[in-house]
C-alpha cells in the first residue's frame, strides 16, 4: 500500500488511540508514541502499529500516535483506517485482515 497524503483516524477519548500517518519515500517506519500507559504497554502498542503496517505493505511512514488506553484491536483498527485514508484507497480486502 502506498501512502500519498496524511491520514488520521481515532479520537482522544478514553480507550481510543489517535493515529496520524504521513508518507515517506525511505527510512522505514518511524513511530512517535505518547500513551497514558506508556510504561506498561508502550512497547506492545508500538509493536502492534508496526505489525499492522507490515501487513498492509507500508514500508516507509511517519507515525504519530496518541494513546488513551486502547486495546490491541482498537490500535489495529485505527492504524488500518488511517493507512487506507492516507493511501486514498477504498478497495478494502477484508479477507486478509
Amino acid at each position: 500500500m502506498k501512502l500519498v497524503k496524511t491520514g488520521t483516524a481515532g479520537t482522544m477519548e478514553s480507550n481510543d488511540i489517535m493515529v496520524t500517518l504521513d508518507p515517506k519515500e525511505a527510512g522505514g517506519v518511524q513511530i512517535a508514541l505518547s500513551s497514558s500507559v506508556m510504561q506498561q504497554f508502550g512497547r506492545q502498542i508500538e509493536a502492534v502499529i508496526r505489525q499492522t503496517l507490515t501487513e498492509l505493505g507500508v514500508a516507509h511512514a511517519t507515525v504519530d500516535a496518541v494513546d488513551k488506553g486502547a486495546l490491541d484491536c482498537t490500535v489495529r483498527a485505527r492504524v488500518r483506517a488511517a493507512a487506507y485514508r492516507a493511501a486514498e484507497n477504498q478497495e478494502y480486502d477484508w479477507g486478509i485482515m
Partner: peptide, 12 residues
C-alpha cells in the same frame, strides 16, 4: 470507514 474497521476488529 473507521467504525467499520473498529467493529470488524472487535468482532474478531
Amino acid at each position: 470507514d473507521a467504525a467499520r474497521f473498529l467493529v470488524f476488529q472487535a468482532l474478531k
